[in-house]
Amino acid sequence: MKQPRRTQADRSATTRAALVRAGRRLFAEHGFAGVGTDAIVREADVSRGALYHHFADKTGLFVAVLDELEGEAARQVADAAATAPEGDFGETMTRALLAWLDACEEPELQRVLLVDGPSVLGWARWREICQRHILGMVEGVLAQGMADGTVRELPVKVLAHALLAVADEAALLVSAAEDTSAARRDVMAVVGPIIEALKP
């Protein structure tokens, strides 16, 4: 049976996916500064022209890789939060934070998202990408908790930003620690009372 012809859109999507896959592996293994465009196109098995057709430069590809990793981490966090008993704000936030710390211990995400992300893109752009995936979810949990009476009435957006800042700093601290298990215990010892303080 004759295979249907692939459309230009199909070929373009396949090429872009190959570039992101190649960038993801190379950036995770060698860091942004240690990867040249020659290595990227060779790994992806595409032409240099294909790289610049899809991305303005190496930084553009890095953004796509970081965005993909952040999206995957956000889904892990959402899945973990969903396992908490309904209406239990403290357990929801605890499971979400533990899932975030788990995700950030993966070498791929740790290198691209936590180490290179802020330095390559600058703090503001890095935060913008990270928040696009997770901020709305945190705001939703807080708003629902306030509506149910399980969270103190506070400005939702400001509180969501504050909790994300805590989570990001916790991930950076744990990922840089010599003893990550001890660092995680210390983080949860500090964050636990913060979460409890948000209950009415």
Rank of each mutant, 00 (worst) to 15 (best):
R184F: 09
E91G: 04
A182H: 12
S47P: 07
G36R: 01
R132S: 13
L97M: 12
P4V: 07
V156D: 04
E169R: 13
E153M: 14
L101K: 01
R21K: 12
R16P: 03
P193L: 07
E178L: 14
S47I: 08
D186R: 14
M188H: 06
G90K: 04
H30P: 00
G149L: 06
G23E: 01
S175Q: 11
E178S: 15
D116A: 00
Q3L: 15
G149S: 06
T37N: 09
A162H: 10
S12W: 03
T94C: 10
G145I: 01
G49I: 06
L114I: 07
L164H: 01
G71T: 08
F62R: 00
V174S: 03
D79E: 14
P155H: 11
A78D: 08
D79K: 11
G140D: 02
R48D: 07
D57I: 10
V174R: 02
L114W: 03
G23F: 00
G23D: 01
G36Q: 04
G140E: 02
L113G: 06
A18E: 06
V20D: 00
V20Y: 02
Q131W: 13
A9S: 12
L66F: 07
L159Q: 09
V115R: 08
T92H: 02
E91W: 03
D102I: 05
A74G: 05
R11T: 09
R95P: 01
R75Q: 15
A39K: 04
E106S: 09
G60E: 06
A165L: 12
R95N: 03
D102N: 09
L173C: 13
R11M: 10
G36W: 03
M1G: 11
W123T: 14
M188V: 13
V190L: 15
L51T: 04
V41I: 15
P200S: 12
P155R: 09
A74Y: 02
V65S: 02
V77T: 08
E29V: 00
D57K: 12
H133Y: 04
V41K: 03
C130S: 13
V63C: 15
V120I: 09
D168W: 11
A22Q: 03
A176N: 12
F55L: 08
R48E: 08
S175K: 06
H161E: 15
A22F: 00
D116I: 01
R16H: 09
E70R: 15
R111M: 03
E139G: 01
V166W: 04
F55C: 06
A147V: 11
T7N: 07
K199G: 13
A177Y: 05
I194H: 10
V77I: 13
M137V: 09
Q3W: 15
A183N: 09
L26N: 00
G71I: 08
V158Q: 09
A183T: 07
A9C: 10
P155E: 11
A78S: 13
K58M: 10
E106Y: 05
G87W: 05
R48V: 08
A167M: 13
D186H: 15
D148G: 13
D57V: 10
G192E: 07
G145T: 02
R95A: 02
L114N: 04
F62L: 07
E68F: 02
E106A: 12
Q110Y: 07
E169G: 14
F55V: 06
V187I: 11
D102C: 05
F62Q: 01
A170G: 08
T59Y: 06
G71K: 05
G71R: 04
Y52C: 11
T37L: 07
P155A: 13
G23Y: 00
L97C: 05
